[in-house]
Computed example of a mutant assay.
Amino acid sequence: MENHPGRTVEYSRTTITELMIPSYANFGGKIHGGILLSLIDKVAYACASKHAGNYCVTVSVDGVEFLQPVEVGDLVSLHASINYVGRTSLVVGIKVIAENVKQGSVKHTNTSYVTMVAKDDDNKPTIVPPLILDKPVEVRRFYEAMRRKELNRSFNEKMDETKANIDMDDAVSLLKDQRCNVKLD
Rank of each mutant, 00 (worst) to 15 (best):
F142W: 08
G6M: 08
E138V: 03
L39P: 02
I94G: 03
A145D: 05
T126Y: 02
C56G: 00
V172Q: 12
E157P: 02
E65Q: 08
N156E: 15
C180M: 11
P69C: 02
A118M: 06
D177W: 03
N123R: 14
Y84V: 02
S60A: 10
D62A: 03
E71H: 09
D122I: 09
E144A: 02
R13I: 07
T15Y: 03
I97E: 14
R140I: 13
A44C: 01
P5C: 06
H79L: 12
L19Q: 14
K176L: 04
D185T: 05
N152V: 10
E150V: 15
I132N: 07
Y11W: 12
E157F: 07
Y55P: 00
I31Q: 00
N110I: 03
I16P: 05
V106K: 09
Q178G: 05
E10S: 10
D169V: 09
D121Y: 12
H4K: 08
K95R: 15
T109S: 11
T15A: 11
S60K: 06
N83T: 10
R147I: 15
I166S: 05
L184M: 12
A164I: 07
V137N: 12
M159A: 13
N156P: 02
D62H: 06
V76Q: 01
A145E: 04
A48S: 05
K119I: 15
N54T: 10
A171T: 07
D122T: 14
A171N: 04
S60P: 04
A25K: 03
I40Y: 04
I40L: 13
D170E: 15
V9D: 01
